[in-house]
Amino acid sequence: MSAVYLVLLLLPLISAQTYHWGPCPSPAVQPNFQLEKYLGKWYEIEKLPTSFARGKCIEANYSLRKDGTIRVLNAQIEKDKLSTAEGTAVVRDMRERAKLGVSFSYFTPYSPYWVLTTDYTSLVVVYSCNDIFRLFHVDFAWILSRSRSLPEATVHYAKDLLTKEGIDISRMRPTDQSCTDLF
């Protein structure tokens, strides 16, 4: 019964998220992922709703730190102001380099950040999922590009990939990218 109360307490916190009953799906990730090619700036084209990125002109910049971790610098325009968040990404298992973990606080564990596919030059499809006691899970999915737009056929390809991997994209929405570089 206490799990039910916990779920009821968590629902307002995840109302901006996409959640489903049952455990997280386990989609296939990019084979032979090359982190060095992935580094640099990516623009958010579409995503499932999140509570932490509701602005426009959302971009992420990935760079390698001297200690081998990855600096993640996210930026967005929210209420006409630049908002940034810096985090850390790590490769959790060298045998599956496309399964990274990302954290934006010293006090929170690393969340999954799985690169499902990328060509490194124009498109990346990323998936993340948090399993809550195997009762339900919270989905995150992003379609990112090296430019502020993608051809519709490429977006369709990315959405088809997510759907084929069992990820519900019915709440996926485009990101307003009508601005210039934030950095």
Rank of each mutant, 00 (worst) to 15 (best):
V115R: 02
Y113M: 04
K99R: 15
L123M: 10
Y110W: 06
V90M: 12
D93I: 11
T118L: 08
R95N: 14
T118Q: 10
V124Y: 07
F107L: 14
V102P: 00
V102E: 00
T117G: 07
R97I: 02
M94Q: 14
A98P: 00
F107K: 10
S105Y: 07
W114H: 13
Y113K: 01
V90K: 15
W114E: 10
T118R: 09
L100E: 01
T121W: 03
V125D: 10
V126Q: 00
V90I: 15
V125I: 11
F104Q: 06
T108C: 02
F107G: 10
W114G: 02
T108Y: 09
V91W: 04
V90T: 14
S105I: 02
T121D: 13
T108M: 11
S103H: 09
V124W: 00
L116T: 01
V115I: 15
L123I: 11
R95I: 06
A98R: 05
P112S: 15
T117C: 03
V91G: 06
E96P: 00
K99A: 14
L100D: 00
L116W: 03
V90H: 05
V102G: 00
Y110F: 15
R97C: 05
D93F: 11
F104W: 09
A98L: 08
D119G: 05
D119R: 09
V102M: 00
Y106I: 01
S122Q: 12
Y106G: 14
T118N: 07
T108R: 13
G101P: 02
W114S: 09
S122L: 02
L116A: 06
A89S: 09
V115N: 02
Y120M: 11
Y110L: 13
D119I: 02
Y106K: 13
V125C: 07
P109G: 13
R92N: 12
W114A: 05
W114V: 08
V91D: 06
V124A: 15
Y110P: 04
